[in-house]
Every structure is written in structure tokens, then in C-alpha cells.
Simulated assay, not measured.
Amino acid sequence: MAPPPTKSDQQVASEFTAYYLQRATKEFAEDLDKVRAADDFKNDALQTLISALQQGTAMFSAEEKRMIVTAAAQPARKS
């Protein structure tokens, strides 16, 4: 069986950002709902909030992103 094709750094970064945002929004769902429900939260602030969350991906190296994306793509093992 041939090994799966290697993803480009751009593909890995894109998949990691999607994965990271999914995990962050799940983990902080209650807090994000409170922010969005605040009286001073405007619709144009949503892009700022998304951008702020995306900046969290900068703390991971390219190698860490690739390792996480690869691990997330693996089917769960049955014990």
C-alpha cells in the first residue's frame, strides 16, 4: 500500500486553522456566546473575534501543525 501523498505547508496551515478554530469554539462556546450576546457587540466585531482566535495558531510551529493535522486525520483506534 502506497503512503498517502504529502500535503503542502499551505494545505497543512489551512487544515490546522480550521481544526484549531473548531476546537477553540467548542472549548470556549459558553464564553463566546456571552461575548456575542453583549449589548456592545456589533456584527462587524465578529470578524475581529474570528481574527483574534486565528492568531492563536501562530504559537504552533509548522512541524507541530503538520503533526496535529496528521493525527486528527487518523481514525480512532479501538481498544
Score class of each variant (00 low, 15 high):
residue 39 D to M: 05
residue 8 S to H: 05
residue 70 T to C: 01
residue 1 M to C: 08
residue 61 S to N: 01
residue 22 Q to D: 13
residue 77 R to T: 11
residue 43 N to S: 13
residue 42 K to S: 09
residue 4 P to L: 13
residue 49 L to C: 09
residue 76 A to L: 15
residue 72 A to P: 05
residue 60 F to Y: 14
residue 29 A to F: 10
residue 65 K to G: 01
residue 4 P to E: 08
residue 53 L to W: 02
residue 10 Q to E: 15
residue 68 I to M: 06
residue 23 R to I: 06
residue 19 Y to V: 04
residue 39 D to V: 05
residue 75 P to Y: 02
residue 33 D to L: 06
residue 66 R to E: 02
residue 46 L to Q: 15
residue 42 K to N: 12
residue 30 E to K: 10
residue 41 F to Q: 09
residue 1 M to P: 10
residue 45 A to S: 14
residue 25 T to D: 03
residue 60 F to N: 00
residue 30 E to R: 10
residue 22 Q to K: 13
residue 43 N to F: 12
residue 32 L to D: 02
residue 40 D to R: 09
residue 26 K to S: 12
residue 31 D to H: 10
residue 1 M to L: 12
residue 1 M to E: 03
residue 48 T to W: 09
residue 17 T to K: 03
residue 13 A to P: 02
residue 9 D to A: 15
residue 29 A to W: 01
residue 73 A to G: 05
residue 15 E to M: 09
residue 4 P to S: 07
residue 50 I to T: 11
residue 13 A to L: 04
residue 10 Q to G: 02
residue 32 L to Q: 00
residue 21 L to F: 00
residue 37 A to Y: 01
residue 11 Q to A: 15
residue 16 F to C: 03
residue 24 A to I: 03
residue 59 M to S: 15
residue 47 Q to R: 07
residue 77 R to Q: 13
residue 70 T to I: 02
residue 42 K to L: 08
residue 54 Q to Y: 08
residue 51 S to T: 12
residue 41 F to K: 04
residue 48 T to S: 12
residue 5 P to T: 00
residue 11 Q to K: 12
residue 9 D to M: 07
residue 40 D to W: 14
residue 2 A to H: 08
residue 8 S to Y: 06
residue 14 S to I: 01
residue 49 L to Q: 09
residue 14 S to V: 05
residue 3 P to A: 13
residue 44 D to T: 00
residue 3 P to W: 11
residue 7 K to I: 03
residue 22 Q to T: 14
residue 27 E to K: 05
residue 76 A to N: 09
residue 32 L to P: 00
residue 40 D to L: 11
residue 65 K to P: 04
residue 39 D to P: 02
residue 45 A to G: 14
residue 12 V to P: 01
residue 47 Q to C: 00
residue 54 Q to K: 15
residue 64 E to N: 10
residue 60 F to I: 03
residue 11 Q to S: 12
residue 59 M to V: 10
residue 45 A to R: 09
residue 6 T to N: 04
residue 5 P to F: 00
residue 78 K to R: 13
residue 78 K to H: 11
residue 33 D to R: 11
residue 41 F to T: 06
residue 2 A to Q: 11
residue 67 M to D: 13
residue 9 D to T: 11
residue 72 A to V: 06
residue 44 D to Y: 04
residue 73 A to D: 04
residue 69 V to E: 04
residue 78 K to F: 12
residue 70 T to P: 02
residue 44 D to N: 05
residue 38 A to E: 01
residue 50 I to E: 10
residue 16 F to N: 01
residue 14 S to D: 08
residue 52 A to V: 05
residue 10 Q to V: 10
residue 55 Q to D: 14
residue 20 Y to I: 00
residue 74 Q to L: 10
residue 1 M to N: 10
residue 28 F to Q: 14
residue 22 Q to F: 08
residue 58 A to L: 13
residue 52 A to S: 13
residue 18 A to W: 03
residue 32 L to F: 00
residue 11 Q to I: 00
residue 39 D to H: 03
residue 48 T to C: 07
residue 40 D to Y: 12
residue 35 V to K: 08
residue 8 S to P: 12
residue 42 K to F: 06
residue 13 A to G: 05
residue 25 T to H: 01
residue 4 P to N: 07
residue 26 K to L: 15
residue 58 A to Q: 15
residue 39 D to W: 03
residue 44 D to H: 00
